[in-house]
């Protein structure tokens, strides 16, 4: 077993009176692809967002690549460079070209010169198959292309882990494939990935492990074949039955 790169223990998150995470533990090994499924409101996104401290857990511990993410002495901006994140709604900067979207953090956080950043940015756009769209603004790109630019923006910083928060949920069905293609290539390059998604086909042939979350806790986890074919818990079975019906 290769070394653990994400180590979250005893995560709790309260939003006012809402108890969204109820003591979640998650360990992810280097080069592993972990899939998180579960009904909406089950805490999947919150779990993901606690890992790069977009959300501060009410209790618990998060260590990513040896860095204590919740320690106030941690330089969080530096630490976040190692954790790429892709959002459901892409969140590209609408006033910038695709290339500038990718190079902003390279220049401002990683301290690269404009020439270096442009070269790295173009290389990242090549990896997501959008070399010819570098000068386009998000408004001129399809949803699938926007999401691939968002992936390029994250991988250009050479993160150790990539977090995907429902990356294909906002896409028209015919555009989903291109994004999954990029994720598959990323997976093959050895990237550690944590993916919140309901793309079962992708989970089946790319995931090492599937977690099923419900009501703020991990109900069960295991290899995709086991979770999808022979889930141990009734709740998992019901959920999987529901999403497969559609």
């Amino acid at each position: 077993m290769s070394r653990t790169i994400v180590d979250a223990r005893g995560l709790h998150k309260h939003f006012g009176s809402l108890h969204v995470l109820k003591g979640v533990d998650l360990q992810v090994a280097e080069r592993e692809l972990v899939f998180v499924i579960g009904p909406s409101g089950s805490g999947k996104s919150t779990l993901l967002r606690c890992l790069n401290r977009l959300e501060v857990p009410s209790a618990g511990q998060v260590i990513v690549d040896g860095i204590d993410m919740l320690d106030p002495r941690t330089d969080i901006n530096h630490a976040r460079q190692r954790i790429g994140m892709v959002f459901q709604s892409f969140n590209l900067y609408p006033h910038m070209t695709a290339l500038s979207n990718v190079t902003l953090a390279l220049r401002k956080v990683a301290g690269k010169s404009r020439a270096e950043a442009d070269a790295l940015g173009r290389a990242a756009l090549v990896r997501v198959g959008l070399a010819d769209r570098a000068g386009h603004t998000p408004g001129q790109l399809s949803g699938g292309q926007q999401q691939r630019v968002a992936i390029a923006r994250a991988i250009a910083l050479e993160p150790r882990v990539m977090l995907f928060d429902e990356p294909t949920s906002a896409l028209d069905p015919e555009l989903v494939g291109s994004v999954l293609e990029v994720m598959r290539a990323l997976r093959e390059s050895g990237m550690t990935m944590i993916v919140v998604s309901h793309e079962m086909g992708f989970a089946r042939n790319a995931a090492d492990r599937v977690l099923f979350m419900d009501h703020g806790a991990i109900v069960e986890e295991g290899p995709p074949a086991l979770i999808f074919e022979r889930p141990a818990h009734e709740r998992t079975r019901a959920f999987i039955g529901q999403i497969q019906r559609h």
Binding site: N52, N77, R80, Q81, F87, S89, L104, A105, R153, A154
Partner: peptide, 23 residues
């Protein structure tokens, strides 16, 4: 400006001030 813009920028390591200024 949508909250997602802040989150995307902060997730790449931009500081509060940099996010405000550039994004």
């Amino acid at each position: 400006v949508a909250k997602g813009q802040w989150e995307a920028a902060r997730s790449t390591g931009l500081s509060f001030g940099q996010t405000l200024l550039h994004v």
